[in-house]
């Protein structure tokens, strides 16, 4: 069939990206292929791994399980938009300081999940952190240092770490 194209405009990291796309295009492919922001990854096809997690209008979503048309007119924050003025965001810093990453493939999703968690709960317990990142799989770290990284970030964001 000749495929209908839809014009969309998605604001990613405060920059507008416009394109005529097939409705079936997944948001993650819009981000990676059209906006060229390859920091967001694809790790599975069943919405389990969370390597594609981005913030859509303030909520963390798995961008492989939304069509890009659904994000038309909305704001997306990806890993590339997190550091400001070439300074790491406290969560990024936490991951660095606490060795919260190894191969780096799941890292962006973990950071975005942590971003969402700390937005809702600035002082999470270890159990709450484990729950908060349970939609994101990591095969390298065993999670323990990721949890440490998020604790570090939480403290720093509350003003506790200089």
């Amino acid at each position: 069939m000749s495929q209908q194209l839809v014009h969309v405009k998605i604001i990613i990291n405060e920059k507008a990206y416009e394109a005529d796309i097939e409705p079936r295009l997944l948001l993650v492919h819009f981000i990676r292929e059209i906006a060229g922001l390859t920091g967001t990854h694809v790790g599975c096809d069943t919405t389990n791994c969370g390597a594609c997690t981005v913030i859509l209008d303030g909520r963390a979503v798995k961008s492989c399980t939304l069509f890009a048309v659904q994000a038309d007119g909305k704001k997306v924050l990806t890993i590339e938009g997190l550091a400001k003025d070439s300074k790491l965001h406290p969560i990024q810093e936490g991951f660095w300081v606490k060795h919260g990453l190894q191969c780096g493939y799941c890292t962006l999703g973990m950071i975005m999940a942590a971003y969402q968690l700390l937005m809702r709960n600035p002082n999470p317990t270890e159990e709450e952190i484990r729950e908060g990142i349970s939609g994101n799989l990591c095969r390298c770290t065993g999670y323990q240092n990721i949890i440490e990284a998020i604790k570090y970030a939480a403290e720093k964001m509350r003003g506790g770490v200089s």
Binding site: T53, R59, A60, V61, K62, L66, Q116, G132, G135
Partner: peptide, 9 residues
């Protein structure tokens, strides 16, 4: 139900 990210959607 599922995970915190899926629950957002």
């Amino acid at each position: 139900l599922a995970d915190p990210i899926v629950r957002n959607v």
